[in-house]
Computed example of a mutant assay.
Amino acid sequence: MTAVESVGMTVSDMDRAVEFYSQVLSFKKVSDVEVLGTEYEQLQGLFGVRLRVVRMQLSNETIELTEYLTPKGKLISIDSHSNERWFQHIAIAVSNMDKAYQHLRSFKVQRASTAPQRIPNSNKAAAGIRAFYFKDPDGHNLEIIYFSIKGLNFQVTLSAKRLCMSNFAVFAKIFVGSYFGKGIDYTSLQLSHRLLVC
């Protein structure tokens, strides 16, 4: 294993999802295809599957949005919590938390956090980092994250070619750009086992 190629998410309405990720989070659409056939049925394990797949890019990272045109799947449960194994999120690095937070508020995003939170000094590895959780139109959890000068050592030592996975986080560092929407910092995946690739 060498790298995370992309992060995939299933959406219920592709046009709505593309509008959200491009207008609210500054992603750019890279490709937009519709696929079907026996190979995709076998790959997905679903009979009669027809998919619309859109790749969106932010800095050097991509996400892959998939809408199942047929068959339709279940919605994310409204009572999902972060301690459940299907929970995952992507974090987008920002250089100005206050401006990024106001930007999100201007779009009236659905909040998961009450407001941006600061990691306390008792967590020496991440002290000073600020984060805010919110949701996309399908209920996927997203995060904006700001690294203070003191907190930068926590992540900057990781490079794009070095991937370390542990029980609750996958780190693939790319901290660049202006106050908002210039890089995905990490995807946080709940894993039932430990995996380390360094």
Rank of each mutant, 00 (worst) to 15 (best):
Asp138Pro: 06
Leu158Asp: 08
Thr114Trp: 08
Asn167His: 06
Ser82Gly: 14
Lys74Gly: 10
Ser82Asp: 14
Ser80Ile: 03
Glu84Tyr: 15
Asp138Tyr: 03
His81Pro: 05
His103Trp: 08
Ser159Asp: 14
Asp79Arg: 08
Lys72Val: 08
Asp98Val: 14
Asn96Asp: 14
Arg85His: 09
Gln110Cys: 11
Ile90Phe: 05
Ile78Ala: 10
Pro137Gln: 07
Gln88Phe: 08
Leu69Arg: 01
Gln117Phe: 13
Gln155Asp: 15
Thr70Cys: 03
Asn96Ala: 09
Lys108Val: 12
Ile119Cys: 06
Leu69Val: 05
Leu75Trp: 08
Gln88Lys: 12
Val156His: 13
Ala115Tyr: 06
Ala160Asn: 11
Ile149Pro: 12
Ser95Met: 01
Asn96Glu: 12
Tyr68Thr: 00
Asn141Pro: 10
Ile145Gly: 00
Ser77Pro: 10
Ile92Asn: 00
Val94Trp: 01
Asn83Ser: 10
Tyr68His: 02
Phe154Thr: 06
Thr114Arg: 11
Tyr133Arg: 05
Ala93Cys: 04
Gln117Ser: 11
Lys161Tyr: 11
Ile149His: 12
Val156Arg: 15
Glu143Phe: 09
Phe87Gln: 04
Phe171Thr: 13
Phe154Pro: 01
Ser106Gly: 05
Lys135Leu: 04
Phe171Trp: 12
Ala125Val: 11
Met165Thr: 08
Ser122Met: 10
Ile129Met: 11
Pro120His: 04
Gly73Trp: 07
Phe132Gln: 01
His89Glu: 05
Ile149Arg: 09
Asn167Trp: 02
Arg118Val: 04
Pro120Gly: 06
Ala169Asn: 12
Arg85Pro: 05
Pro116Asn: 03
Lys72Gly: 09
Glu67Tyr: 03
Asp79Ala: 07
Phe171Tyr: 14
His140Asp: 07
Val170Asp: 01
Asn167Gln: 08
Asp138Val: 03
Ala126Asp: 08
Tyr133Ala: 04
Phe171Arg: 12
Thr70Ile: 05
Ser77Arg: 13
Gln117Leu: 13
Asp136Pro: 06
Phe154His: 09
Ser122Ala: 13
Leu163Ser: 01
Ser166Cys: 05
Leu152Ala: 14
Ser113Ala: 13
Ser95His: 02
Gln155Arg: 10
Phe134Ser: 01
Phe87Asp: 07
Leu75Val: 13
Pro137Asn: 09
His89Pro: 04
Met165His: 06
Thr70His: 05
Tyr146Glu: 00
Lys173Pro: 01
Arg162His: 14
Ala91Ser: 07
Ala125Asn: 15
Gly139Met: 02
Ser113His: 13
Asn96Cys: 12
Trp86Lys: 13
Phe171Glu: 11
Gly151Leu: 02
Ser122Glu: 12
Ala112Lys: 04
Leu65Thr: 06
Phe107Lys: 02
Lys108Arg: 15
Ser159Ile: 08
Asn141Val: 11
Met97Ser: 01
Lys173Trp: 02
Val94Met: 01
Phe134Asn: 00
Phe132Asp: 01
Arg130Met: 07
Asn121Ala: 10
Asp98Ser: 11
Ala126Leu: 13
Leu69Met: 07
